[in-house]
Amino acid sequence: MLNTIFTIAQNTFRETMRDRILLAALAVVLIIIAFTLFIASISIEQDVRMIVDFGTSAIYILQIFVAIFIGSMLMYKEVEQKTFFLILPKPIRRYEIILGKALGLTATTFTVTLLSTLALFAILLTKGATLFVVPILLSVFLSTLEAMILILISIVFSGFTSPILSAIYTIVFFLAGHAGESLRPLIMFPQSTVIEVVARGIYYLLPNLEKFNIRNDIVFGDIPNATSIIFSLLYALFYASLLFFVASVTFKKKEF
């Protein structure tokens, strides 16, 4: 079973890493990271913070782009262009395909993240700012976890809708996942029981993606403690398992 999942993951990784859209997006982000040098040069005493802020944000946008758009396109190719017709009749279980696809695309996200992070480190090195290495690593690690969740969400949606709708739904999920905290007042100080129940339901159903956002904190030198990082990791794994289960059930029933 593990070999099969690894085979699918390896194939997904190889296919997506050669995708011209991905390479173009990576190139754009590398240019933005290089451009931070110019931005830093026009800011007074805040140059390193500017580089870290712009750099980590650019890397984050790249990760979200890979998760949502490359993720939706990946399943589009399988379902609409019927590459699945060559794979599904083989001795392979559908959940192995789902897990392999998710892991392969997560590996792709990890690779482009690594490349752009190295570029950011190179820029920081020119400024002698080595203090930010660990905070940046923690930040991109957490945002990679967020990307993993979004990859699985796009796979879940692509199981029963078109690729464009899948991308739109994933974007809505992404935005709602970051706005979850704004529901807290409705839960803490409810105007009515119905509103409280609905708000509580949405709050617990949607992933709290803000748990993976420490970009602002690291710019000001705040690093979350180890417990908080481990909790975020466990939260991501729990949510990813849940999404993987839903995607597996959806795809098991899907007919082509």
Partner: peptide, 11 residues
Amino acid sequence: MPESPAFYGYL
């Protein structure tokens, strides 16, 4: 072998 088989183009 499906009708008009589709492949992973970048492989």
